[in-house]
Design a protein around this nucleic acid. Sequence first.
DNA 1: TAGTGGTCTAGACCACTGC
DNA 2: CAGTGGTCTAGACCACTAA
Lengths: 252, 252
Amino acid sequence: MEPGRARYKRVADDLRAAIRRGEYGPGDRLPSQPQLAERYGLTQGMIGRAMAILAAEGLIRLEFGRGAFVLEAPRVSRHRVIDRDYVSQPGSSSFAVEQERGGHVTKAPLVREPEAVVPPPEVAERLGLGESELTLLRDRRMWVDDAPSQIATSYIPMTYAGGADLALPDAGPSVIYGRLAERGFGPVRFTEDIEVRGATQDEARFLRIASGEPVFEIIRTAIDAEGRQVEVCVNILPALRTRLTYGWRQDR
Amino acid sequence: MEPGRARYKRVADDLRAAIRRGEYGPGDRLPSQPQLAERYGLTQGMIGRAMAILAAEGLIRLEFGRGAFVLEAPRVSRHRVIDRDYVSQPGSSSFAVEQERGGHVTKAPLVREPEAVVPPPEVAERLGLGESELTLLRDRRMWVDDAPSQIATSYIPMTYAGGADLALPDAGPSVIYGRLAERGFGPVRFTEDIEVRGATQDEARFLRIASGEPVFEIIRTAIDAEGRQVEVCVNILPALRTRLTYGWRQDR
DNA sequence: TAGTGGTCTAGACCACTGC
DNA sequence: CAGTGGTCTAGACCACTAA
Protein backbone atom coordinates (compact mmCIF):
# COMPACT_ATOMS: atom_id res chain seq x y z
CA MET A 1 0.00 0.00 0.00
CA GLU A 2 1.27 3.42 -1.00
CA PRO A 3 2.80 5.24 1.97
CA GLY A 4 1.98 8.89 2.80
CA ARG A 5 -1.60 8.29 1.70
CA ALA A 6 -4.29 8.53 4.35
CA ARG A 7 -4.86 5.14 5.91
CA TYR A 8 -8.62 5.17 5.37
CA LYS A 9 -8.00 5.93 1.69
CA ARG A 10 -5.58 3.03 1.48
CA VAL A 11 -8.28 0.82 2.97
CA ALA A 12 -10.65 2.06 0.25
CA ASP A 13 -7.97 1.35 -2.39
CA ASP A 14 -7.46 -2.11 -0.98
CA LEU A 15 -11.14 -3.00 -0.93
CA ARG A 16 -11.68 -1.48 -4.39
CA ALA A 17 -8.87 -3.62 -5.77
CA ALA A 18 -10.29 -6.72 -4.07
CA ILE A 19 -13.68 -6.09 -5.66
CA ARG A 20 -12.15 -5.48 -9.09
CA ARG A 21 -10.12 -8.68 -8.71
CA GLY A 22 -13.40 -10.49 -8.10
CA GLU A 23 -12.46 -11.44 -4.56
CA TYR A 24 -15.88 -10.11 -3.62
CA GLY A 25 -18.43 -10.73 -6.37
CA PRO A 26 -21.71 -8.94 -7.11
CA GLY A 27 -24.15 -9.31 -4.24
CA ASP A 28 -21.50 -10.45 -1.76
CA ARG A 29 -21.41 -8.87 1.67
CA LEU A 30 -18.16 -7.25 2.74
CA PRO A 31 -16.85 -7.94 6.27
CA SER A 32 -18.45 -5.70 8.89
CA GLN A 33 -16.86 -2.43 9.88
CA PRO A 34 -15.67 -3.69 13.31
CA GLN A 35 -14.12 -6.73 11.60
CA LEU A 36 -12.29 -4.59 9.08
CA ALA A 37 -11.30 -2.17 11.85
CA GLU A 38 -9.45 -4.96 13.57
CA ARG A 39 -7.90 -6.26 10.35
CA TYR A 40 -6.54 -2.85 9.35
CA GLY A 41 -5.83 -1.53 12.83
CA LEU A 42 -8.16 1.44 12.52
CA THR A 43 -11.30 2.54 14.35
CA GLN A 44 -14.75 1.70 13.07
CA GLY A 45 -15.31 5.35 12.16
CA MET A 46 -12.37 5.38 9.79
CA ILE A 47 -13.48 2.13 8.13
CA GLY A 48 -16.91 3.70 7.68
CA ARG A 49 -15.24 6.60 5.90
CA ALA A 50 -13.40 4.23 3.57
CA MET A 51 -16.63 2.44 2.71
CA ALA A 52 -18.40 5.75 2.10
CA ILE A 53 -15.83 6.39 -0.64
CA LEU A 54 -16.64 3.11 -2.38
CA ALA A 55 -20.36 3.80 -2.02
CA ALA A 56 -19.89 7.22 -3.65
CA GLU A 57 -18.12 5.53 -6.54
CA GLY A 58 -21.06 3.23 -7.04
CA LEU A 59 -19.10 0.06 -6.25
CA ILE A 60 -21.00 -0.99 -3.11
CA ARG A 61 -24.28 -0.21 -1.43
CA LEU A 62 -24.38 0.38 2.32
CA GLU A 63 -27.57 -0.99 3.84
CA PHE A 64 -28.60 0.19 7.23
CA GLY A 65 -28.40 -2.57 9.82
CA ARG A 66 -27.64 -5.20 7.16
CA GLY A 67 -24.18 -4.67 5.78
CA ALA A 68 -22.17 -3.51 2.77
CA PHE A 69 -22.95 -5.25 -0.50
CA VAL A 70 -21.06 -5.32 -3.79
CA LEU A 71 -23.24 -3.92 -6.55
CA GLU A 72 -23.77 -5.73 -9.80
CA ALA A 73 -24.76 -2.32 -11.17
CA PRO A 74 -26.58 -3.37 -14.31
CA ARG A 75 -26.47 -0.22 -16.38
CA VAL A 76 -29.57 0.90 -18.19
CA SER A 77 -28.81 1.83 -21.76
CA ARG A 78 -30.06 4.94 -23.47
CA HIS A 79 -29.50 4.87 -27.21
CA ARG A 80 -29.29 7.53 -29.82
CA VAL A 81 -28.92 5.75 -33.11
CA ILE A 82 -28.05 8.57 -35.41
CA ASP A 83 -28.15 6.75 -38.69
CA ARG A 84 -30.48 7.34 -41.58
CA ASP A 85 -30.45 3.63 -42.32
CA TYR A 86 -31.85 2.90 -38.89
CA VAL A 87 -34.33 5.64 -38.08
CA SER A 88 -36.79 7.35 -40.35
CA GLN A 89 -38.94 9.27 -37.90
CA PRO A 90 -37.90 11.81 -35.29
CA GLY A 91 -39.67 10.13 -32.42
CA SER A 92 -38.63 6.58 -33.13
CA SER A 93 -35.32 6.75 -31.32
CA SER A 94 -36.91 8.09 -28.18
CA PHE A 95 -36.20 6.67 -24.80
CA ALA A 96 -39.57 5.02 -24.31
CA VAL A 97 -39.45 3.27 -27.68
CA GLU A 98 -35.93 2.02 -27.05
CA GLN A 99 -36.89 0.66 -23.65
CA GLU A 100 -40.11 -0.98 -24.79
CA ARG A 101 -38.23 -2.79 -27.52
CA GLY A 102 -36.68 -4.84 -24.71
CA GLY A 103 -40.07 -5.76 -23.26
CA HIS A 104 -40.02 -3.07 -20.60
CA VAL A 105 -42.99 -1.04 -19.46
CA THR A 106 -42.52 2.69 -19.23
CA LYS A 107 -44.64 5.48 -17.94
CA ALA A 108 -43.96 9.18 -17.94
CA PRO A 109 -46.66 11.09 -16.08
CA LEU A 110 -46.57 14.84 -15.94
CA VAL A 111 -45.53 16.13 -12.53
CA ARG A 112 -47.73 19.15 -12.94
CA GLU A 113 -49.83 20.77 -15.62
CA PRO A 114 -47.81 22.38 -18.41
CA GLU A 115 -47.46 26.07 -17.72
CA ALA A 116 -45.81 29.19 -19.05
CA VAL A 117 -42.54 29.97 -17.26
CA VAL A 118 -39.35 31.97 -17.70
CA PRO A 119 -36.73 29.29 -18.48
CA PRO A 120 -33.41 29.02 -16.62
CA PRO A 121 -30.50 30.89 -18.26
CA GLU A 122 -28.81 27.85 -19.86
CA VAL A 123 -32.11 27.03 -21.56
CA ALA A 124 -32.95 30.61 -22.59
CA GLU A 125 -29.49 30.91 -24.11
CA ARG A 126 -29.97 27.80 -26.23
CA LEU A 127 -33.41 28.97 -27.36
CA GLY A 128 -32.04 32.39 -28.26
CA LEU A 129 -34.56 34.06 -25.96
CA GLY A 130 -34.11 37.32 -24.10
CA GLU A 131 -34.72 37.74 -20.39
CA SER A 132 -38.24 37.16 -19.13
CA GLU A 133 -39.46 35.65 -22.42
CA LEU A 134 -41.87 32.83 -21.70
CA THR A 135 -41.80 29.14 -22.60
CA LEU A 136 -44.25 26.29 -22.18
CA LEU A 137 -42.81 23.97 -19.54
CA ARG A 138 -43.54 20.25 -19.46
CA ASP A 139 -42.13 18.46 -16.43
CA ARG A 140 -42.12 14.66 -16.49
CA ARG A 141 -40.79 11.94 -14.19
CA MET A 142 -40.20 8.75 -16.11
CA TRP A 143 -40.38 5.17 -14.89
CA VAL A 144 -39.27 1.84 -16.33
CA ASP A 145 -40.74 -1.30 -14.78
CA ASP A 146 -41.80 0.64 -11.65
CA ALA A 147 -38.26 1.92 -11.09
CA PRO A 148 -37.51 5.62 -11.52
CA SER A 149 -35.37 6.22 -14.60
CA GLN A 150 -35.12 9.89 -15.48
CA ILE A 151 -36.45 13.40 -15.10
CA ALA A 152 -37.33 15.18 -18.35
CA THR A 153 -38.10 18.87 -18.52
CA SER A 154 -39.07 20.36 -21.86
CA TYR A 155 -39.20 24.05 -22.79
CA ILE A 156 -40.93 25.35 -25.92
CA PRO A 157 -41.02 29.06 -26.72
CA MET A 158 -44.62 30.33 -26.61
CA THR A 159 -44.22 31.51 -30.19
CA TYR A 160 -44.02 27.89 -31.35
CA ALA A 161 -46.16 26.32 -28.63
CA GLY A 162 -49.20 28.22 -29.89
CA GLY A 163 -52.51 26.69 -28.79
CA ALA A 164 -53.06 24.59 -25.74
CA ASP A 165 -52.90 21.21 -27.52
CA LEU A 166 -49.20 20.85 -26.70
CA ALA A 167 -50.25 20.80 -23.09
CA LEU A 168 -51.82 17.36 -23.37
CA PRO A 169 -50.77 15.27 -20.38
CA ASP A 170 -49.72 12.13 -22.24
CA ALA A 171 -47.87 13.64 -25.17
CA GLY A 172 -44.30 12.25 -25.49
CA PRO A 173 -41.54 13.84 -27.57
CA SER A 174 -42.71 12.20 -30.80
CA VAL A 175 -46.20 13.65 -30.35
CA ILE A 176 -44.79 17.05 -29.47
CA TYR A 177 -42.50 17.02 -32.50
CA GLY A 178 -45.40 15.96 -34.69
CA ARG A 179 -47.50 18.90 -33.51
CA LEU A 180 -44.63 21.28 -34.11
CA ALA A 181 -44.21 19.85 -37.62
CA GLU A 182 -47.90 20.47 -38.40
CA ARG A 183 -47.30 24.14 -37.74
CA GLY A 184 -44.15 24.27 -39.88
CA PHE A 185 -41.71 24.07 -36.99
CA GLY A 186 -40.74 20.42 -37.37
CA PRO A 187 -37.30 19.78 -35.86
CA VAL A 188 -34.68 18.36 -38.21
CA ARG A 189 -31.44 19.04 -36.38
CA PHE A 190 -30.53 18.10 -32.84
CA THR A 191 -27.73 18.87 -30.42
CA GLU A 192 -27.16 17.11 -27.12
CA ASP A 193 -24.84 18.60 -24.50
CA ILE A 194 -23.83 16.12 -21.80
CA GLU A 195 -22.50 17.19 -18.42
CA VAL A 196 -22.04 15.40 -15.10
CA ARG A 197 -22.70 17.01 -11.70
CA GLY A 198 -23.83 16.07 -8.20
CA ALA A 199 -27.53 15.33 -7.78
CA THR A 200 -29.71 17.84 -5.96
CA GLN A 201 -31.72 16.53 -3.03
CA ASP A 202 -34.90 16.59 -5.07
CA GLU A 203 -33.34 14.66 -7.96
CA ALA A 204 -31.73 12.16 -5.58
CA ARG A 205 -35.03 11.48 -3.83
CA PHE A 206 -36.81 10.63 -7.08
CA LEU A 207 -33.96 8.65 -8.65
CA ARG A 208 -33.33 6.79 -5.37
CA ILE A 209 -29.65 7.63 -5.23
CA ALA A 210 -27.53 9.47 -2.67
CA SER A 211 -27.66 13.26 -2.75
CA GLY A 212 -24.54 14.49 -4.54
CA GLU A 213 -24.08 11.23 -6.45
CA PRO A 214 -23.18 12.02 -10.07
CA VAL A 215 -26.02 12.49 -12.54
CA PHE A 216 -26.04 13.11 -16.27
CA GLU A 217 -27.56 16.42 -17.27
CA ILE A 218 -28.34 16.09 -20.95
CA ILE A 219 -29.63 19.19 -22.71
CA ARG A 220 -31.12 18.49 -26.13
CA THR A 221 -31.81 21.38 -28.48
CA ALA A 222 -34.19 20.77 -31.40
CA ILE A 223 -33.82 23.00 -34.45
CA ASP A 224 -36.17 23.26 -37.42
CA ALA A 225 -35.34 23.55 -41.12
CA GLU A 226 -35.15 27.35 -40.89
CA GLY A 227 -32.58 27.18 -38.09
CA ARG A 228 -35.05 28.14 -35.36
CA GLN A 229 -34.54 26.60 -31.93
CA VAL A 230 -38.00 25.18 -31.29
CA GLU A 231 -37.46 23.10 -28.14
CA VAL A 232 -34.96 22.46 -25.38
CA CYS A 233 -35.26 19.34 -23.24
CA VAL A 234 -33.25 18.76 -20.05
CA ASN A 235 -32.83 15.12 -18.99
CA ILE A 236 -31.46 14.01 -15.62
CA LEU A 237 -30.28 10.40 -15.29
CA PRO A 238 -28.26 8.58 -12.61
CA ALA A 239 -24.77 8.56 -14.15
CA LEU A 240 -23.42 5.51 -12.33
CA ARG A 241 -26.32 3.34 -13.49
CA THR A 242 -26.61 4.53 -17.06
CA ARG A 243 -24.83 3.84 -20.31
CA LEU A 244 -25.33 6.35 -23.09
CA THR A 245 -24.82 5.15 -26.63
CA TYR A 246 -24.43 7.23 -29.77
CA GLY A 247 -24.01 5.67 -33.19
CA TRP A 248 -23.54 7.23 -36.61
CA ARG A 249 -22.30 6.68 -40.16
CA GLN A 250 -19.51 8.72 -41.60
CA ASP A 251 -18.92 7.92 -45.26
CA ARG A 252 -16.24 9.66 -47.19
CA MET B 1 -32.81 22.77 7.28
CA GLU B 2 -34.38 19.33 6.93
CA PRO B 3 -34.47 17.53 10.29
CA GLY B 4 -33.40 13.91 10.72
CA ARG B 5 -30.61 14.46 8.20
CA ALA B 6 -27.04 14.22 9.46
CA ARG B 7 -25.87 17.62 10.62
CA TYR B 8 -22.72 17.60 8.53
CA LYS B 9 -24.86 16.83 5.48
CA ARG B 10 -27.11 19.74 6.32
CA VAL B 11 -24.04 21.94 6.50
CA ALA B 12 -23.06 20.70 3.03
CA ASP B 13 -26.60 21.40 1.78
CA ASP B 14 -26.47 24.87 3.28
CA LEU B 15 -23.12 25.76 1.75
CA ARG B 16 -24.10 24.25 -1.60
CA ALA B 17 -27.24 26.38 -1.67
CA ALA B 18 -25.21 29.48 -0.76
CA ILE B 19 -22.83 28.83 -3.64
CA ARG B 20 -25.69 28.21 -6.07
CA ARG B 21 -27.35 31.43 -4.87
CA GLY B 22 -24.12 33.23 -5.74
CA GLU B 23 -23.45 34.20 -2.13
CA TYR B 24 -19.96 32.84 -2.74
CA GLY B 25 -18.83 33.46 -6.32
CA PRO B 26 -16.21 31.64 -8.38
CA GLY B 27 -12.75 32.04 -6.84
CA ASP B 28 -14.09 33.17 -3.46
CA ARG B 29 -12.72 31.60 -0.32
CA LEU B 30 -15.19 29.99 2.05
CA PRO B 31 -14.84 30.69 5.79
CA SER B 32 -12.29 28.46 7.49
CA GLN B 33 -13.32 25.18 9.07
CA PRO B 34 -12.91 26.44 12.66
CA GLN B 35 -15.04 29.50 11.80
CA LEU B 36 -17.78 27.34 10.29
CA ALA B 37 -17.48 24.93 13.22
CA GLU B 38 -18.43 27.73 15.58
CA ARG B 39 -21.19 29.02 13.34
CA TYR B 40 -22.87 25.63 13.02
CA GLY B 41 -22.03 24.32 16.48
CA LEU B 42 -20.05 21.33 15.20
CA THR B 43 -16.45 20.23 15.51
CA GLN B 44 -13.87 21.07 12.87
CA GLY B 45 -13.75 17.42 11.80
CA MET B 46 -17.44 17.39 10.91
CA ILE B 47 -17.13 20.64 8.95
CA GLY B 48 -14.22 19.07 7.07
CA ARG B 49 -16.49 16.17 6.17
CA ALA B 50 -19.14 18.54 4.88
CA MET B 51 -16.59 20.31 2.71
CA ALA B 52 -15.26 17.00 1.38
CA ILE B 53 -18.75 16.36 0.03
CA LEU B 54 -18.76 19.63 -1.90
CA ALA B 55 -15.26 18.95 -3.18
CA ALA B 56 -16.37 15.52 -4.43
CA GLU B 57 -19.21 17.20 -6.30
CA GLY B 58 -16.76 19.50 -8.02
CA LEU B 59 -18.21 22.66 -6.47
CA ILE B 60 -15.15 23.71 -4.45
CA ARG B 61 -11.46 22.93 -4.34
CA LEU B 62 -9.76 22.34 -0.98
CA GLU B 63 -6.21 23.69 -0.99
CA PHE B 64 -3.85 22.51 1.65
CA GLY B 65 -2.90 25.29 4.05
CA ARG B 66 -4.73 27.91 1.97
CA GLY B 67 -8.45 27.40 2.21
CA ALA B 68 -11.56 26.24 0.36
CA PHE B 69 -12.25 27.97 -2.94
CA VAL B 70 -15.35 28.02 -5.10
CA LEU B 71 -14.58 26.60 -8.53
CA GLU B 72 -15.49 28.40 -11.70
CA ALA B 73 -15.11 24.99 -13.35
CA PRO B 74 -14.84 26.04 -16.97
CA ARG B 75 -15.83 22.91 -18.79
CA VAL B 76 -13.76 21.77 -21.73
CA SER B 77 -15.95 20.82 -24.66
CA ARG B 78 -15.53 17.68 -26.71
CA HIS B 79 -17.61 17.72 -29.85
CA ARG B 80 -18.91 15.04 -32.13
CA VAL B 81 -20.60 16.82 -34.97
CA ILE B 82 -22.37 13.99 -36.68
CA ASP B 83 -23.65 15.84 -39.68
CA ARG B 84 -22.74 15.27 -43.29
CA ASP B 85 -23.07 19.00 -43.93
CA TYR B 86 -20.35 19.69 -41.42
CA VAL B 87 -17.79 16.93 -41.73
CA SER B 88 -16.53 15.25 -44.81
CA GLN B 89 -13.55 13.31 -43.51
CA PRO B 90 -13.43 10.77 -40.71
CA GLY B 91 -10.61 12.40 -38.82
CA SER B 92 -11.82 15.96 -39.03
CA SER B 93 -14.08 15.82 -36.00
CA SER B 94 -11.29 14.52 -33.83
CA PHE B 95 -10.53 15.96 -30.48
CA ALA B 96 -7.26 17.63 -31.49
CA VAL B 97 -8.81 19.37 -34.49
CA GLU B 98 -11.73 20.60 -32.43
CA GLN B 99 -9.43 21.98 -29.77
CA GLU B 100 -7.00 23.64 -32.15
CA ARG B 101 -9.86 25.43 -33.83
CA GLY B 102 -10.08 27.50 -30.64
CA GLY B 103 -6.40 28.42 -30.73
CA HIS B 104 -5.32 25.74 -28.31
CA VAL B 105 -2.16 23.70 -28.54
CA THR B 106 -2.47 19.98 -28.12
CA LYS B 107 -0.02 17.17 -27.82
CA ALA B 108 -0.61 13.48 -27.50
CA PRO B 109 2.61 11.58 -26.94
CA LEU B 110 2.61 7.83 -26.74
CA VAL B 111 3.10 6.58 -23.20
CA ARG B 112 4.93 3.53 -24.46
CA GLU B 113 5.70 1.91 -27.77
CA PRO B 114 2.74 0.26 -29.45
CA GLU B 115 2.72 -3.42 -28.66
CA ALA B 116 0.67 -6.56 -29.14
CA VAL B 117 -1.53 -7.33 -26.15
CA VAL B 118 -4.60 -9.32 -25.18
CA PRO B 119 -7.31 -6.65 -24.80
CA PRO B 120 -9.56 -6.35 -21.73
CA PRO B 121 -12.88 -8.23 -21.99
CA GLU B 122 -15.10 -5.20 -22.74
CA VAL B 123 -12.81 -4.40 -25.68
CA ALA B 124 -12.47 -7.98 -26.94
CA GLU B 125 -16.25 -8.30 -26.87
CA ARG B 126 -16.73 -5.20 -29.01
CA LEU B 127 -14.07 -6.39 -31.47
CA GLY B 128 -15.68 -9.81 -31.69
CA LEU B 129 -12.42 -11.46 -30.66
CA GLY B 130 -12.03 -14.70 -28.76
CA GLU B 131 -9.94 -15.09 -25.65
CA SER B 132 -6.21 -14.52 -25.99
CA GLU B 133 -6.48 -13.04 -29.50
CA LEU B 134 -4.00 -10.21 -29.88
CA THR B 135 -4.45 -6.52 -30.68
CA LEU B 136 -2.07 -3.68 -31.35
CA LEU B 137 -2.28 -1.35 -28.36
CA ARG B 138 -1.60 2.37 -28.63
CA ASP B 139 -1.61 4.21 -25.30
CA ARG B 140 -1.66 7.99 -25.38
CA ARG B 141 -1.89 10.74 -22.75
CA MET B 142 -3.24 13.93 -24.26
CA TRP B 143 -2.57 17.52 -23.25
CA VAL B 144 -4.19 20.84 -24.10
CA ASP B 145 -2.21 23.99 -23.31
CA ASP B 146 0.07 22.07 -20.92
CA ALA B 147 -2.91 20.78 -18.92
CA PRO B 148 -3.76 17.08 -18.98
CA SER B 149 -6.99 16.46 -20.88
CA GLN B 150 -7.59 12.78 -21.55
CA ILE B 151 -6.21 9.26 -21.75
CA ALA B 152 -6.76 7.48 -25.05
CA THR B 153 -6.13 3.77 -25.50
CA SER B 154 -6.64 2.26 -28.93
CA TYR B 155 -6.91 -1.43 -29.79
CA ILE B 156 -6.65 -2.75 -33.35
CA PRO B 157 -6.90 -6.46 -34.10
CA MET B 158 -3.58 -7.73 -35.47
CA THR B 159 -5.43 -8.92 -38.58
CA TYR B 160 -6.12 -5.32 -39.55
CA ALA B 161 -3.06 -3.71 -38.00
CA GLY B 162 -0.83 -5.59 -40.46
CA GLY B 163 2.63 -4.07 -40.83
CA ALA B 164 4.42 -1.96 -38.31
CA ASP B 165 3.51 1.41 -39.86
CA LEU B 166 0.49 1.77 -37.56
CA ALA B 167 2.98 1.84 -34.74
CA LEU B 168 4.25 5.30 -35.69
CA PRO B 169 4.57 7.40 -32.53
CA ASP B 170 2.81 10.53 -33.77
CA ALA B 171 -0.10 9.01 -35.65
CA GLY B 172 -3.45 10.36 -34.43
CA PRO B 173 -6.83 8.75 -35.18
CA SER B 174 -7.14 10.39 -38.59
CA VAL B 175 -3.77 8.95 -39.64
CA ILE B 176 -4.68 5.56 -38.23
CA TYR B 177 -8.03 5.54 -40.01
CA GLY B 178 -6.33 6.60 -43.24
CA ARG B 179 -3.91 3.69 -43.01
CA LEU B 180 -6.76 1.31 -42.35
CA ALA B 181 -8.62 2.69 -45.36
CA GLU B 182 -5.60 2.08 -47.63
CA ARG B 183 -5.85 -1.58 -46.74
CA GLY B 184 -9.58 -1.74 -47.37
CA PHE B 185 -10.60 -1.53 -43.71
CA GLY B 186 -11.65 2.12 -43.69
CA PRO B 187 -14.14 2.75 -40.87
CA VAL B 188 -17.53 4.15 -41.93
CA ARG B 189 -19.70 3.48 -38.90
CA PHE B 190 -19.02 4.45 -35.30
CA THR B 191 -20.55 3.70 -31.93
CA GLU B 192 -19.68 5.49 -28.72
CA ASP B 193 -20.68 4.02 -25.34
CA ILE B 194 -20.46 6.51 -22.49
CA GLU B 195 -20.26 5.48 -18.87
CA VAL B 196 -19.28 7.30 -15.66
CA ARG B 197 -17.25 5.70 -12.88
CA GLY B 198 -14.74 6.66 -10.18
CA ALA B 199 -11.20 7.41 -11.36
CA THR B 200 -8.47 4.89 -10.62
CA GLN B 201 -5.41 6.22 -8.81
CA ASP B 202 -3.39 6.16 -12.01
CA GLU B 203 -6.01 8.07 -13.97
CA ALA B 204 -6.48 10.58 -11.16
CA ARG B 205 -2.76 11.29 -10.95
CA PHE B 206 -2.52 12.10 -14.65
CA LEU B 207 -5.77 14.08 -14.88
CA ARG B 208 -4.96 15.94 -11.64
CA ILE B 209 -8.24 15.10 -9.97
CA ALA B 210 -9.07 13.27 -6.75
CA SER B 211 -8.99 9.50 -6.87
CA GLY B 212 -12.56 8.27 -7.17
CA GLU B 213 -13.79 11.52 -8.71
CA PRO B 214 -16.14 10.72 -11.61
CA VAL B 215 -14.59 10.21 -15.06
CA PHE B 216 -16.14 9.57 -18.44
CA GLU B 217 -15.18 6.23 -19.95
CA ILE B 218 -16.01 6.55 -23.63
CA ILE B 219 -15.57 3.44 -25.74
CA ARG B 220 -15.65 4.10 -29.47
CA THR B 221 -16.00 1.20 -31.88
CA ALA B 222 -15.07 1.79 -35.52
CA ILE B 223 -16.69 -0.48 -38.12
CA ASP B 224 -15.80 -0.76 -41.79
CA ALA B 225 -18.10 -1.07 -44.82
CA GLU B 226 -18.16 -4.85 -44.50
CA GLY B 227 -19.32 -4.68 -40.89
CA ARG B 228 -15.94 -5.62 -39.44
CA GLN B 229 -14.97 -4.03 -36.11
CA VAL B 230 -11.56 -2.61 -37.00
CA GLU B 231 -10.73 -0.53 -33.93
CA VAL B 232 -11.85 0.15 -30.38
CA CYS B 233 -10.68 3.28 -28.58
CA VAL B 234 -11.17 3.88 -24.85
CA ASN B 235 -11.12 7.52 -23.75
CA ILE B 236 -10.97 8.66 -20.12
CA LEU B 237 -11.89 12.28 -19.35
CA PRO B 238 -12.61 14.13 -16.09
CA ALA B 239 -16.42 14.14 -16.02
CA LEU B 240 -16.89 17.20 -13.81
CA ARG B 241 -14.75 19.36 -16.09
CA THR B 242 -15.98 18.14 -19.44
CA ARG B 243 -18.95 18.82 -21.66
CA LEU B 244 -19.68 16.28 -24.37
CA THR B 245 -21.61 17.45 -27.39
CA TYR B 246 -23.30 15.36 -30.05
CA GLY B 247 -25.11 16.88 -33.00
CA TRP B 248 -26.98 15.30 -35.91
CA ARG B 249 -29.61 15.82 -38.59
CA GLN B 250 -32.75 13.79 -38.73
CA ASP B 251 -34.86 14.58 -41.77
CA ARG B 252 -38.13 12.85 -42.34
C1' DT C 1 4.95 31.80 13.21
C1' DA C 2 -0.12 31.46 12.89
C1' DG C 3 -3.64 29.71 10.19
C1' DT C 4 -5.23 26.31 7.04
C1' DG C 5 -6.98 21.72 5.64
C1' DG C 6 -6.34 16.46 6.73
C1' DT C 7 -6.07 12.53 9.65
C1' DC C 8 -6.93 9.77 13.58
C1' DT C 9 -8.49 7.97 18.25
C1' DA C 10 -11.37 6.39 21.98
C1' DG C 11 -15.47 6.31 23.09
C1' DA C 12 -20.31 7.30 22.86
C1' DC C 13 -24.95 6.99 21.16
C1' DC C 14 -28.43 6.31 17.60
C1' DA C 15 -31.48 3.82 14.15
C1' DC C 16 -32.25 0.04 11.75
C1' DT C 17 -32.30 -5.19 10.69
C1' DG C 18 -33.12 -9.81 11.61
C1' DC C 19 -33.25 -13.48 14.74
C1' DC D 1 -31.70 -9.11 21.51
C1' DA D 2 -27.04 -8.67 19.12
C1' DG D 3 -25.06 -6.94 15.05
C1' DT D 4 -24.94 -3.49 11.52
C1' DG D 5 -24.04 1.05 9.51
C1' DG D 6 -24.15 6.28 10.74
C1' DT D 7 -23.12 10.22 13.47
C1' DC D 8 -20.66 12.98 16.66
C1' DT D 9 -17.25 14.78 20.23
C1' DA D 10 -13.05 16.38 22.35
C1' DG D 11 -8.84 16.46 21.59
C1' DA D 12 -4.54 15.48 19.33
C1' DC D 13 -1.12 15.78 15.79
C1' DC D 14 0.45 16.42 11.04
C1' DA D 15 1.68 18.90 6.59
C1' DC D 16 1.34 22.69 4.09
C1' DT D 17 1.06 27.98 3.10
C1' DA D 18 1.99 32.63 3.68
C1' DA D 19 3.62 36.49 6.13
